[in-house]
Design a binder for these strands. Structure first.
Lengths: 253, 253
DNA sequence: CGAGTGATTGATCTTTCTCAACCCAGGTGG
DNA sequence: CCACCTGGGTTGAGAAAGATCAATCACTCG
């Protein structure tokens, strides 16, 4: 399914992006990551990149576009574990579990960069800082998953919607002032699958938030109009870590 | 609060336990872990070992007893993210996040072994296999958290209770035949906080499972009477990895 | 222009919660 | 030894959040 658009080796543009996605690397570590062979791909919307329970041997860095991680239960039910945003990695957990823990499906057209997991992990032997960065990345992912549990367990539908919006806001524009617009290329039906709610009920919460003047939401973007208020309504606490200097600016022209 | 019962250094008994908790280590790696200084502690029931948002500098291995990871939201609401069982580690995520992502509270009297996180991570520089094992451990934890999301998002109360029981069964007696009894030292109220349900409703599901002859459950133990049936009822899939040769046999006499 | 997707709203039904008892076992103080 | 107290479990009844069913609308795309 995936369309390979660029030639197999685009070493010069891709490596630095990976180095940028991982926190706290030293200069030599960044350098060696930059030289890691990489393949840039452009993937259509609605493409399954990884099947649940199917082993993966490559690490995928998202440059642009969104994806979801989801698990199907029964014919009509699916649970979205979380969203993959530009700058996020996918495929790191797979190696240790021998199988991807969930399906990964693109929600928009995506630009991704693929690395050999084997080669990357081999580097950790000589560059322990890379191993540490990978652990830090896993810890970040766990924190985000923990927030997902928080939402689903004890929060009302209203709180869940707010909490998720704030997370997705923070992951794109941490600390930005009220009125900032961020991407929101997902349907309400997808939000419902993430929050364990029906589409209808999600819509009612969104309508309510609009009437209250707390957010603006159209087909592709979200504007948070009163972060502080939303924060106190949902008990949201930032767990997102500041990312290295912005990823987007490093995109191929 | 914690009572220090044993003398500060019990190097000979504790280290091997840590080596045993981590998957796929080589012999020299096991050896060096065995020599890591360690402190054995016996902790009373209901002791908070780690506060949310408070940094941690030590890794804690549970030898016996259970604990919970929980996050409070509001005065009366708490969400249990998961349970810590004998053989599990706590404190690994903390270092990378600078803060524990949740409270850790003992549910029974616990025997734990503490290691310096700094010293352990220092070892990863010379023994990359240890770093890999830590990543594998983090990946395992993420898989268990993912299952928790699955339960909370799209499952009925009945399914949630079954699914959790099977997870806790597998984590103690993976692959054991029907009729096997495992520890279950947690109250229904705690199960409710884990599954995002009210105590009353949890009780109704438990009653139902008893009437249907699928499980036996008393104050401290759970007997799974028909694993296959329960599995198909809840869609449960084993994600637990086989542990190294049993931990209990290594306990100090 | 017709088809399909996603959003929106109303009406009704179901699951789960909340409140309120009551029971039982184990521990404690007199 | 007993009366009492407490934590946990069990059950019933009414209330509420959220699901389901159904219909309409706006928009995009071939």
């Amino acid at each position: 399914m995936n369309m390979l658009v660029t030639p197999p080796k685009t070493t010069d543009a891709a490596g630095p992006r990976l180095a940028r996605a991982l926190p706290g690397l030293t200069e030599p570590e960044r350098l060696v990551l930059s030289n890691l062979p990489a393949v840039t791909r452009f993937v259509r919307r609605n493409t399954t990149l990884a099947h649940e329970a199917q082993p993966l041997d490559r690490l995928r860095l998202f440059i642009s576009g969104w994806a979801k991680r989801s698990v199907g239960i029964g014919p009509e039910r699916q649970q979205v574990l979380g969203f993959v945003l530009p700058g996020d990695l996918d495929g790191l957990v797979a190696d240790y579990r021998q199988a991807a823990p969930a399906d990964v499906v693109t929600l928009t057209r995506c630009e991704t960069v693929e690395f050999s997991l084997f080669e990357l992990l081999h580097l950790t032997q000589d560059y322990p800082g890379i191993g540490a960065a990978l652990r830090a990345y896993l810890a970040d992912e766990a924190a985000i998953l923990g927030d997902q549990v928080l939402r689903l367990g004890r929060m009302s539908a209203y709180e869940r919607v707010i909490h998720l919006m704030l997370e997705l806001f923070d992951r794109q524009a941490l600390g930005a002032p009220d009125g900032t617009r961020v991407d929101f290329p997902i349907t309400q039906s997808l939000v419902a699958d993430a929050l364990g709610l029906s589409v209808v009920h999600v819509n009612r919460q969104v309508m309510r938030l609009r009437k209250e003047g707390l957010v603006r939401l159209d087909r592709r973007s979200l504007t948070v109009l009163n972060f502080a208020k939303l924060q106190s309504l949902s008990g949201y606490r930032t767990r997102i870590r500041e990312r290295a200097p912005d990823l987007a600016s490093a995109r191929a022209s």
